[in-house]
């Protein structure tokens, strides 16, 4: 799971408490699925068990949230290996959006298809507007920007793909009729 590597990446910059880690994580990946405290500790537990992090002391106050964790040599090696490992481009396209658009364009009657595709495009456009509004927020961190761009770029790709699918089908009908 990539959350554990994000935690290792944060610890590579210096030892931290679980509590600090949670905040550093949320700050760097602000629009990612938020990490629950429980998940931070269970992940740290697993990393410790695997020898990738180690306890590096307790604060005065004590308690589990005051245990400082540090990355180990093995942890650095694991992080390095993960970073070197190129993400495989998905070999198959699997998406509910693809299935629905194919059904709408190739199977459903035109009126029904138009209704769905129009609503889908509207939903994407509305979300893109919300995200764009966020980007104009002056206090956005670089992490925020990167995550918002990720979402926006993917929504834009969906829309471009939808447009070319619509035009391909329209062209096909035009050819068939002429």
């Amino acid at each position: 799971m990539s959350a554990s590597y994000v935690l290792l990446g944060l610890l590579a910059r210096g030892p931290m408490h679980g509590y600090e880690l949670k905040h550093a994580y949320d700050q760097r990946l602000p629009r990612a699925k938020p990490l629950a405290f429980g998940q931070v500790y269970s992940t740290l537990g697993r990393l410790e068990r695997d020898g990738l992090v180690t306890q590096a002391g307790q604060d005065q106050a004590g308690g589990p949230e005051r245990t400082t964790f540090a990355i180990t040599g093995e942890g650095r090696a694991a992080l390095e290996a993960w970073l070197s490992d190129v993400e495989a481009p998905a070999p198959y396209v699997t998406s509910a959006l693809l299935s629905k658009v194919v059904v709408a364009l190739l199977v459903a009657d035109p009126a029904r298809a138009t209704e769905y595709l129009s609503a889908q495009q509207q939903a994407h456009t509305t979300r893109m507007r919300e995200l764009t509004r966020l980007k104009s927020d002056q206090d956005l961190t670089v992490g925020d920007h990167i995550a918002v761009d990720y979402a926006l770029t993917h929504l834009d790709a969906d829309l471009r793909w939808l447009q070319s699918a619509l035009h391909r089908v329209a062209d096909l009908h035009r050819e068939v009729r002429s």
Partner: peptide, 12 residues
């Protein structure tokens, strides 16, 4: 009004 910019499945 559909916002799609192309007619669906009619070739228009």
């Amino acid at each position: 009004p559909t916002g799609l910019g192309v007619a669906v499945g009619t070739g228009a």
